[in-house]
Design a protein around this nucleic acid. Sequence first.
DNA 1: CATGAATGAGCTTTCATTCAT
DNA 2: TATGAATGAAAGCTCATTCAT
Lengths: 195, 195, 195, 195
Amino acid sequence: MARASATDPDTRRAEILAASRRVFARKGYHRTGISDIVAEVGIARGTFYRYFDSKRIVFGLVLQQMMAEVVSVVQPIDITAPIPPQVFANLDRLVRTIAAEDVCRVLFSEAVGIDTKSDDALRAFYAEALQRIEQALALGQQLGVVRPANVTVTARCLLGVMKEPVVQAALDGTELDADELAAEMLLLLQGGVLQ
Amino acid sequence: MARASATDPDTRRAEILAASRRVFARKGYHRTGISDIVAEVGIARGTFYRYFDSKRIVFGLVLQQMMAEVVSVVQPIDITAPIPPQVFANLDRLVRTIAAEDVCRVLFSEAVGIDTKSDDALRAFYAEALQRIEQALALGQQLGVVRPANVTVTARCLLGVMKEPVVQAALDGTELDADELAAEMLLLLQGGVLQ
Amino acid sequence: MARASATDPDTRRAEILAASRRVFARKGYHRTGISDIVAEVGIARGTFYRYFDSKRIVFGLVLQQMMAEVVSVVQPIDITAPIPPQVFANLDRLVRTIAAEDVCRVLFSEAVGIDTKSDDALRAFYAEALQRIEQALALGQQLGVVRPANVTVTARCLLGVMKEPVVQAALDGTELDADELAAEMLLLLQGGVLQ
Amino acid sequence: MARASATDPDTRRAEILAASRRVFARKGYHRTGISDIVAEVGIARGTFYRYFDSKRIVFGLVLQQMMAEVVSVVQPIDITAPIPPQVFANLDRLVRTIAAEDVCRVLFSEAVGIDTKSDDALRAFYAEALQRIEQALALGQQLGVVRPANVTVTARCLLGVMKEPVVQAALDGTELDADELAAEMLLLLQGGVLQ
DNA sequence: CATGAATGAGCTTTCATTCAT
DNA sequence: TATGAATGAAAGCTCATTCAT
């Protein structure tokens, strides 16, 4: 009976979490079996349950992890410095993070409807993201760099501007040029499309 | 149990399809059992299978139905008439259609990864949507009403502008004011957000 | 609603029975659905049940029919006339009857284990067949034309001699030459195979 | 329910196969449910599927097992030694094997029409059996110990001689005296029944 | 602590039979 | 009487989870 080399429990936990993340990203929540995960780590089925209570819970943790990563790359704008380069940098980091091949599918396609807790977490994530965008817009309006607009609605539109290109690239397998994408996004923010 | 009265086959088929659509929208593909569907219509399990060969096939049909509805509301732009009102009208109809409470979840969350055929259909749907937007942008550029831009990337961003506000409204249960949303979208297209 | 032309009930019953027999022969009991039978007759599902109480019962009737046919072709031996030609004639008719393409499969493969009544009927059929052979053997022994032997055991062997060639022909799709087969059987009865 | 203790996988597999064989013999393929098999072993439904992919596959394996047993007991004739005792010994072993209560029903009644693979296997089994008998007859003719005859037809008759007594014994529940049966068969081969 | 065989609730699907029309 | 849509029990099978070793 080959026994996995005794590892530090925290390391082992992290290993399983990482493997789960990889598999969820590759196959989606429903097509992923515990078998896939334990095969990925190289442990026995039972071992998985020593570290996590259920498949749903690990999925929830993977979700949290991804949301935290996304949140972490967005830096507050320094209003004493030129705005556009800062926005560009944020967009650029955001796109790269989301595009990191696994985040996209898990966060935007698989996460809905797994269970109540995940749904809540996801809602909270979006709520925070939207709030940040709204605040940025509101601040911009006070500073006179953002035109008058319904910030709630506009924030949602802008969220779509950031999400969708990455989602589509994942769907059709296109390679993503983050710099160009961020640049186009910035142009859109700056002047729309009509002239 | 009371026997459901024999109905016109086409009507019954439509009934089941409509009920399936409702349940899929409410619970998602995986959490929906045939039991849920037949309970919704008030028929026996076997009756479902008189009209449809499998759960996946009904889901595919629901998907097709929704995609067709979305596609059908977008009218071509008449370039001899003023553009913005036409764009507004299209956005308005689009938003209303997607927001029809069930379309959103099924089309944007549940449809991914059910099976190869659904995936292909969905990809084709997005491909067509994006192509339409790209063509509109390209035409606009020729006419000088759209600024120079990478139309492929920009089309994806605009797709996000249309999808995301509706997705978010569905997620947090907000009532959607289609007119205002379309108006804000138009403003975004016309001038971005920065001034 | 096309209605099958009103027919004499007895005729209709016979029609359904005949169709059932054909389908059972073609597909076997378990692979035959009521749908197959009613399609073969050109009536509605419900009509079938106006004439027969269940699938099993029709199968039982088909079975009886076949058993009766088989029994009917075997003529008693006239001991005042030469024996071998009479035996030959009986064997010849028997083989032809069993080989009538449907009898074989239904009687020898499908009939076992459908239900208690069919099993009993089949057992009774075999019991009668064996008893006839045994009596013929016993009579032959009295007349000195049959060698001493355990008639019970020998009767079973002879039953196999008659059944198996037809069964095998059906299994491998070979065309059957009844005359030759009967002739060989007779030779076997007369002198075994060893010399 | 008490949890079945983990057993050596090969043993467990064999256990399930043996139980399946018993149940198939008792109830036939179609009346046997997975429930019956797992009840017979004393395991849960899922456990069955850890060892076998489907009901049909286990049935196929049972079939193979039985065919192999039957084939294995027939020894080639040594033509330098007296023939009849060797034939007797073969018949005796054959009868005992087929009569082992379960072989008969499964091999001769239930095996037909389950699926294409089983049908093919069965046909191949019979083809081989018949070929062996034919070759023995042909060899016997060359050696002058077998009378001239159509070996193909005669082989089929002889197959019936071996099968039918056992089939009938199983059908009517008679205890089988293998020695006597083999002896009678030998007599039949040696001199037919008429004198 | 690690293991993986065992579990069983629950799924989709089938089809002989019923009964309102 | 004939119809065929409706029925629902029961089948085979899956897989997240448990627990004796």
